[in-house]
Amino acid sequence: MSKQNRKKFLDIILGAGATAWFASILYPISKYLIPPDIADANVTSIEVGPEIEFKRGSSKIVRFGRKPVIIIRRKNGDLKAFAATCTHLDCNVQFKNETEQIWCACHNGFYDLEGKNISGPPPRPLAKYIVRVARGIIVISSEDMA
């Protein structure tokens, strides 16, 4: 190989190297630009499901970010949502349909349907969440976003 050719060859593979290097930087950047499936950064609201499937006088516990949230459908159809972790120790609360109260079975703590602690050991009310129904879908969102 002549000196000239060798120089040319070096230039070509140098160009190839530069391209590969550039590509290895562009790859993560282009991937980064594609928005992820979960479009929003914040778990400030979640969809619980269709309203018609949620029976009156029932409740369920759903995951809201890192925290469990209890969503309640009263006999009259009203929807309510509260943090599901009892303020006494860390048990999950449940809805008592007969008395329309929220109850923690661990030490018999009671809350009313405003989340207020009314009897038993709970020292504080349950945090409230906002429930809305949008196009038949129940959506709950945290209060500090309101």
């Binding site: 070096l10 593979i13 140098l14 190297g17 530069a18 590969a20 290097w21 290895s24």
Partner: peptide, 12 residues
């Protein structure tokens, strides 16, 4: 990739 590119650059 980076090391190869760097070596080539050095040779250049």
């Amino acid at each position: 990739i980076l090391t190869m590119f760097a070596i080539l650059l050095y040779l250049k």
